[in-house]
Write a protein that binds this DNA or RNA. Structure first.
Length: 792
DNA sequence: TCATAAAACCTTTTT
DNA sequence: GGTTTTATGA
């Protein structure tokens, strides 16, 4: 079978340059041609390089036009990078390639085709919070909470069903109606689906699932995309779920050319259909089952494990040589992952040499651990490592708090990826809801959110009256607002409602021709949103107003990058940003992120914090089938991100929910050969009480099961905070030293570190930093304004 | 209707 | 420790 385009000769030697510097396996992965190829790419084995060269060689050898290529990546940032690298290899713009995430590709398809099945192309996307808000409403209305249905259980179940391509009807077909619980869930699912359709909105899972339904229900639509995408490449295949798998199957199917009679192409022109039938598209998938870490959101490892069985004439190529890490880091990674049975044995190797040992540290508390991380980063930076080449990974977002506190105090520039996001702030959600109301007038959730924000005197009672007017006439909530006069409400409320409706309608009528920042500023001005914040006497509202200004800046940035972009494009982009997309390579800051976000990234120096039982592996994973193995893979992913240096740290006690619990070293630490780790403070050196009793790694003390809460209040007298006994302890205390001035030579006293001498002072104003040599605690960098210090 | 206070819940991981 | 929901009174 050949994939050479009609009437074009392949250029035989043109691709030599594309193979430069590749090992034999990589080379084969670039050059192999056939219907299905699986590239098993261990961590750091150069898969991105292989993928980009494979795409470039298809284009350069004239086996494919750029427009015939669909490449799926895990993040938007990875997509942008891949496009750039392909264009660099080709030395020209490769117009028409689709390189994007599953979700972005599906949005693009759905925008074009939504009209086929009862949506319009101006649909909006519900994020998880929107979905949950809708489900909450439905549960309340149905009184389903009395039957034990919670928002999160229902949301998770619906998400799982959608990832399995089970829609309401097929669920109903196999549901057990004798079980009132199940019947109730079905009703929740049904109403949720109906409300989404009414709101002209898709949730995250719909984006994939509805695209599959679209292709199945409308073969002539599917044929259009099957004919177009002749080469489909999927990265991180081990983390695809069933719906994504089905989507790929639909797309690679052989197109039925007869269905395309009279169809319109992507350029808006009628298609010219050739007589020769087309084969199925060629599929290339890249993945590593050892890095599968998204089972919780439906990723099905069988997709990659059973690939060969699934695609009969397929080829598998293994990439095992690692070009990223030192041998010590790889040995640790290999040792850890080999504890997962049920996997194909695979051993990464490198020619880089052993490198530095892994550094271990056991802190007394999360703060102490964070101080260790900060100290080591300062040291690394002093020795020439850029901040941007350093990253800190953790299992849960809550671990950022201690790290941030200490980093601020130590004047380490950092950036937290993901976590509490800008777009999750109430004021940003409000303003975004206004924008959604403009872009998609059918969406009642967005409208409800802003109806009384800023305060207009439209309370729940008024809203209910509007809703019942709408329900009685099968009209939208928005339409009800336009007819507020017919509800017999007070003149003041009526005026407020019609006033808001007018603003929305007027701004909405100009949206097609207006730049996004102008839409936003007009809205803010006419609704008085910022004005209300500025007039408020809540001191936090000033910061909220600044956040809104920041959003205006974001829209300007968007418009600059997308000159033709409209409001819908902006909303889509915002809805689909991933945590890793926020990375800015030129930022010059240390990156903090969860282990999940770290997938696909690499850093010279990597810190993995909280390597403790109940955190890594996380307590919640213990009961899930396959949970502990997945946690181990997560740790493996973290380790293999490190190029030169790896630091593993834990704490003896960790603060959670306001009180402190004892933490035990993670079982995974034992799985790393001891000679690979150099402990600066081993779990044996530190005990949770700060005493000297040595303690075996991972031994459990009598009287303590895992993570027992230390006694605190309630009956027993509150135990004294054990931290205060420790010379090394670090408090969360923050103070304002005003304009305390320090000079080299000054003696100071620090609450945590004791006495010390100022060595150097740098920076200006509020960012003045003192470098202090403490008598016992060593060298530290302190932000003078807030450090708990006094001059002696 | 709205502002403030008390109480309840919470923490896996994410497109 | 922090957010979000509910209770209370103006």
């Amino acid at each position: 079978m050949t994939y050479v385009l009609d009437g074009m000769d392949p250029a035989p030697h043109a691709s030599d340059r594309l193979l430069e510097g590749l090992n034999p396996q990589q080379r084969e992965a670039v050059e192999y041609r056939g219907p299905a190829l699986l590239i098993v790419a261990g961590a750091g084995s150069g898969k991105t390089s292989v993928l980009t060269r494979r795409i470039a060689s298809l284009i350069q050898n004239r086996e494919a036009y750029p427009s015939q290529i669909l490449a799926i990546t895990f993040t938007n940032k990875a997509a942008a990078e891949m496009r750039e690298r392909v264009e660099q290899l080709l030395g020209q713009r490769a117009e028409g390639m689709w390189i994007s995430t599953f979700h972005s590709a599906c949005v693009r398809i759905l925008r074009r085709e939504a009209e086929h099945f009862g949506f319009t192309r101006s649909f909006t996307i519900y994020d998880s919070a929107d979905s949950r808000a809708l489900i909450k409403r439905i549960i309340k209305e149905l009184d389903a909470d009395t039957m034990g249905h919670t928002v999160s259980s229902a949301a998770n179940k619906i998400s799982r069903l959608k990832n399995e391509l089970t829609d309401v009807e097929s669920y109903a077909r196999q549901a057990n109606f004798n079980d009132p619980n199940e019947a109730m869930f079905l009703e929740i699912f049904r109403q949720y689906t109906r409300e989404l359709q009414r709101a002209n909105a898709f949730d995250f899972d719909d984006l994939i699932a509805q695209t599959v339904y679209l292709f199945r229900a409308f073969p002539q639509v599917a044929a259009l995309y099957q004919r177009r995408f002749r080469h489909i490449l999927v990265d991180e295949y081990q983390d695809t779920n069933h719906a994504q798998y089905a989507l790929i199957r639909e797309l690679t199917r052989r197109p039925d050319m007869e269905l395309l009679e009279g169809a319109v192409g992507f350029d808006g022109q009628p298609l010219r259909i050739s007589k020769t039938p087309l084969d199925e598209s060629s599929l290339t998938v890249v993945g590593d089952s050892d890095q599968s870490i998204y089972a919780f959101r439906g990723a099905d490892i069988r997709n990659i494990v059973e690939f060969e069985r699934d695609f009969p004439r397929s080829k598998v190529i293994l990439l095992e040589q690692n070009y990223r890490s030192t041998q010590n880091i790889l040995d640790a990674a290999n040792a850890v992952i080999s504890n997962n049975f049920d996997r194909k044995d695979k051993n990464l190797f490198t020619t880089f040499g052993a490198g530095e040992k892994i550094v271990g540290y056991t802190g007394y508390s999360g703060h102490d651990e964070a101080q260790f991380v900060a100290d080591e980063i300062t040291e690394l930076h002093r020795n020439g490592t850029d901040y941007k080449d350093i990253a800190v990974f953790y299992r849960t977002n809550s671990q950022t708090r201690a790290l941030e506190e200490i980093f601020i105090r130590s004047a380490i520039p950092y950036r937290v990826l993901g976590g509490t996001k800008f777009y999750e702030r109430a004021e940003i959600k409000d303003v975004m809801a206004y924008l959604v109301c403009i872009a998609n007038p059918a969406d009642p959730m967005a409208l409800r959110r802003i109806m009384n924000v800023p305060k207009r005197g439209i309370g729940p009672a008024t809203e209910a009256a509007l809703q019942s007017w709408a329900d009685a006439r099968d009209e939208s909530l928005r339409e009800a607002m336009r007819h507020a006069g017919e509800l017999g409400l007070g003149p003041k409320v009526t005026g407020a409602i019609t006033g808001l409706a007018e603003i929305l309608d007027e701004v909405g009528s100009t949206v097609e021709k207006t730049q996004v920042p102008d839409v936003l500023t007009t809205l803010l001005q006419r609704t008085g949103y910022v004005e209300a914040l500025r007039a408020s006497r809540d001191p936090q509202d000033e910061a909220r107003a600044e956040n809104v200004d920041e959003l205006v800046a974001v829209t300007k940035e968007f418009q600059r990058n997308n000159p033709g972009g409209r409001l819908l494009d902006f909303l889509t982009e915002v809805a689909l940003v991933a945590a890793a997309d926020e990375l800015d390579d030129s930022s010059g800051t240390v990156s903090l992120m969860t282990l999940h976000t770290a997938k696909g990234l690499e850093y010279d120096a990597v810190f993995i914090t909280g390597v403790e039982e109940d955190l890594l592996p996380h307590r919640m994973s213990a009961n899930e089938p396959g949970g502990p193995a997945e946690e181990r893979r997560l740790f493996y992913v973290g380790i293999t991100r490190a190029k030169k240096r790896l630091y593993l740290s834990l704490a003896m006690t960790r603060a959670a929910f306001g009180d402190v619990s004892v933490a035990m070293p993670s079982r995974y630490l034992q799985e790393i050969p001891p000679q690979l780790i150099e402990w600066k403070q081993s779990p044996g050196d530190a005990t949770s009480r700060g005493g000297l009793r040595p303690r075996a790694l991972n031994a459990r003390r009598e009287g303590f099961s895992y993570r027992n809460s230390l006694p605190s209040g309630g009956g027993m007298p509150a135990a004294p905070k054990p931290k205060t006994e420790w010379a090394n302890k670090v408090t969360g205390q923050v103070r304002d030293n005003g304009d305390l001035t320090l000079e080299p030579g000054d003696r100071i006293r620090h609450v945590d570190f004791g006495d010390g001498r100022v060595v150097d002072v740098t920076g200006v104003g509020a960012k003045k930093i003192a470098e202090v040599l403490f008598d016992t605690a060593g060298r530290k960098r302190l932000l003078i304004k807030i450090a708990p210090i006094e001059k002696l």
